[in-house]
Design a protein around this nucleic acid. Structure first.
Length: 162
DNA sequence: GTAATGATTGTTAAG
DNA sequence: CTTAACAATCATTAC
């Protein structure tokens, strides 16, 4: 409404770095993942179309700019070009990103599964050696991998141009 | 020597 | 609806 996007677009950047960990204890973290939660299977966020494009762009950019050193240079250049690209050009990238999202959802499903040991009220590893059998495979079957790759992708919605 | 930072946009999850 | 933060990358810097 009143906000629309202007307020958000004002300065979206600048806070990602606000996640500084006061604890200087040896912590292997990139920046925000410092917390190292106890989630063993936490799925990482799939790369957006922009990142997919960036992956390729990086090679191109570095190929023509071997002198470039800062990652920010590629990011800026990539972002500039990204906006310069037409939706049709980003289409293939978005398509790939869409697939990543689908996989992400799947991973989330597993992550959501949360192994609440149905057997043990309090201790879970107490008598693990007692009756630890493979009681897996209940569902998770019939998972057909849909690797459909539209060969005939006719992008006709290309702008008529002027 | 290790770890964080910088910069881009998008996407998702939570509030 | 809105905010916040993270996704890759890599040289450089800081302690």
């Amino acid at each position: 409404m009143k906000n629309g996007k202007g307020a958000v677009d004002d300065r979206v950047v600048g806070k990602r770095k606000a996640a500084l960990k006061p604890d200087s204890s040896s912590a292997k973290l990139s920046k925000k993942a410092r917390n190292a939660k106890k989630d063993p299977n936490k799925p990482k966020r799939p790369p957006s179309a922009f990142f997919v494009f960036l992956e390729e762009f990086r090679k191109t950019f570095k190929a023509e700019n071997p002198n470039v050193k800062a990652v920010s240079a590629v990011g800026k250049a990539g972002g500039a070009k990204w906006k310069s690209m037409t939706p049709a050009e980003k289409a293939p990238y978005e398509d790939k990103a869409a697939k990543k999202k689908a996989e992400y959802e799947k991973l989330m499903n597993a992550y959501n599964k949360k192994p609440t040991n149905p057997v043990n009220d309090k201790d879970e590893e107490s008598d693990k050696s007692k009756s630890e059998v493979h009681d897996e495979e209940d569902e998770a079957s019939g998972e057909e991998a849909h690797q459909e790759e539209e060969d005939d992708e006719d992008e006709d919605d290309e702008e008529d141009d002027d």
